[in-house]
Amino acid sequence: MTSVSDSVRMDPDKENLAGSDATNKPRVHRRGALEYVAWVACALVALGVIRTLLTNENYQWDVVAQYVTAETVLRGLVMTVVLTILCMTFGALLGLVIAVLRASPLRPVRILAGAYVTFFRGTPVLVQLIFWFNIAALYPNLAIGIPFTDVSQDIDVNRLISATTAAVVGLSLNQAAYQAEIFRGGFASVDKGQIEAADSLGMSRGTKLRRIIVPQSMPTIVPATGNQFIGMFKETSLVSVLGVAELLQSVQLIYARTYQTIPLLIVACVWYLAMTLLLSYPQSLIEKKFSRTRARVSNEPALAPTPTELMGDAK
């Protein structure tokens, strides 16, 4: 034993099997057999799926091609996009308000805002949508006026809440609850030292929020909101139950007439998938940009000296 280890210590290269210099030998990781097995198995699954897509005539690809750019479908697509943008805008604005209220120093305000989030996150959005559609049953007449005076204007709620309004209201209110949580998480991600520095300067709550907390929480908030946007795009399909003529409802209208259910559902899927992929690209850019700034938004000193520093400092 001793003699072997001694010889290794004295001449480490002696143990080499063959000619080439040990310092130049590449380091190799051999692929395990499992990886080859996985390749074969996954290829078989993929082939099977492709084969049935091509050979099963019930897919009716010619019908899909015929309807994918049909006017009704495109109009539905536009409605879906409009709904997404409207609901995200309202949802984000209301969500910001609720997030700020949840951080209020006044306890009752905090409790109320918390209750809002709990209610809208704790009940299914589909139920909420149907609820808003039928709100007239609960409040048949809405009076807009000045409290404790005779000045008021009655509004028929049934006429006010059309299917589209119910859809926008329902999705926005629901989205606001989720968005509020995103903002809250973003605010919480801001370093405590930042708030202390602002307090130490005597900054008011409002200034602190606008100038310190919101700008610094953007790296957390923006990518999460982007994900919500993509999610909302697909979530709008729920409002088809209210009869809003968005993408899913449009294809449903067609197949109710032609009974070509499967190909028309594929048409809808093609558009949902295409739009989602389209939105994923800017989303990945946003995520990359903000993950970079997040690395910068820290108190760690820069690793390398800046050029000006190298050229000579005043001190």
């Binding site: 370093d191 030292g193 520095a197 602002a198 310190i212 610094q216 938004v297 820290s298 108190n299």
Partner: peptide, 9 residues
């Protein structure tokens, strides 16, 4: 502060 706490934005 020990950790400077400059506003990074």
């Amino acid at each position: 502060f020990q950790s400077f706490n400059l506003f990074p934005n």
